[in-house]
């Protein structure tokens, strides 16, 4: 088992009356891609800001490679790379001028700096556009240079905050390829997104965030198991006052692993949803409940998020 490079314990960040991060704890193993999945405002960027030393937590602790993000911020800054959500580049400078500047900030200079700029530009496949001004680049190209600027110093831990926002599918593929190459070179990555497909594709471990808290965490497989390995039956039932205790009776049917009731909806996880459907419907009929809508689906993160939070991921 790989050692943890990042450890966060009970992180809290408050801005006046708003609690943006509310008791977040997690660990990230060396060499993995760890994903934060959640809607806008879930607390992903604030958590990244604390880990990158941009913000100090109101309470809680976090270490990166053993260095405290609060007490040893200068050491942490030397080993991390941040790719912020915004295009944090100088638009009137060229791609290579931007990289040279950020490289100097990380103590690179002379021939090593030039060599590293070339390597990074080749990695993001923009070496031939090195002398182009950033403000003349497409959104996807800007994102790739934005990512490159965070890689110049070979960071041990790279924080990628929604790096695909506003890019076309082709550029997105480029970015994914680059992320895998970075991971393969030994860099640990924290990736945030509100796109479940990206997190499913890229991340070894995933933490689902909502309202400043981690509501579930694990590998993709472990998370989907929360919905039942065989699938989910979602029913809209009426009248609203369907008998109390219905959940227990449904939960006792063949293959059903969990039942959750949200007003007029029943979310039933099952080892085999096709096999469980008939006995469940029989129970409902016997208790006088009408089914106005029925949906069967295989588990995915989108559904899991709804299951955990009661709302859509993109709300």
């Amino acid at each position: 088992m790989a050692d943890s490079i990042v450890t966060a314990e009970n992180l809290v960040k408050r801005f006046d009356k708003l609690t943006a991060v509310d008791g977040v704890s997690f660990t990230i193993d060396e060499g993995e891609i760890f994903g934060f999945l959640g809607p806008n405002g879930a607390g992903k960027t604030t958590t990244i800001s604390i880990l990158s030393t941009y913000l100090e937590p109101t309470s809680g602790t976090a270490t990166i490679d053993g260095f405290s993000v609060t007490g040893e911020a200068a050491r942490v800054r030397e080993i991390i790379g941040l790719v912020p959500q915004e295009i944090a580049l100088y638009p009137t400078l060229t791609a290579i001028e931007n990289l040279r500047f950020y490289g100097r900030m990380y103590n690179l200079g002379g021939a090593p700096l030039e060599r590293r700029c070339r390597e990074v530009l080749e990695l993001v496949e923009l070496w031939d556009r090195r002398d182009g001004r950033i403000d003349q680049f497409s959104g996807g190209m800007k994102r790739r240079i934005n990512m490159g600027a965070g890689l110049l110093h070979h960071p041990r831990f790279l924080l990628l905050d929604e790096p695909t926002v506003g890019v076309d599918p082709q550029s997105r593929e480029h970015i994914f390829d680059t992320i895998f190459k970075i991971r393969d070179s030994g860099t640990t990555i924290l990736y945030t997104s509100h796109y479940m497909e990206e997190v499913e594709l890229l991340c070894d471990n995933i933490a689902i965030m909502d309202k400043g808290r981690i509501v579930a965490a694990g590998t993709l497989k472990e998370l989907l198991k929360l919905l039942g390995e065989g699938g989910v039956i979602e029913l809209e039932i009426s009248p609203p006052g369907c008998p109390v205790g219905l959940e227990e009776q449904v939960g006792a049917q063949t293959g059903v692993t969990s039942v959750r009731r949200e007003e007029d909806r029943l979310l039933i996880s099952s080892d085999n949803s096709a096999r469980s459907l008939a006995p469940v419907m029989k129970v409902l009929e016997g208790r006088g409940c009408q089914v106005s809508n029925l949906e069967l689906y295989t588990p995915n993160l989108e559904k899991l998020f709804i299951h955990l939070t009661g709302k859509e991921l993109r709300e």
Binding site: S52, T53, Y54, A74, R77, E78, I80, L82, P84, Q85, E86, I87, A88, L89, Y90, Y102, M105, Y106, N107, A149
Partner: peptide, 13 residues
């Protein structure tokens, strides 16, 4: 506003 200052704040400077 652009975020370049923020990027510098998390660099060793």
């Amino acid at each position: 506003d652009r975020g370049t200052l923020g990027r510098l704040l998390v660099a060793p400077i």
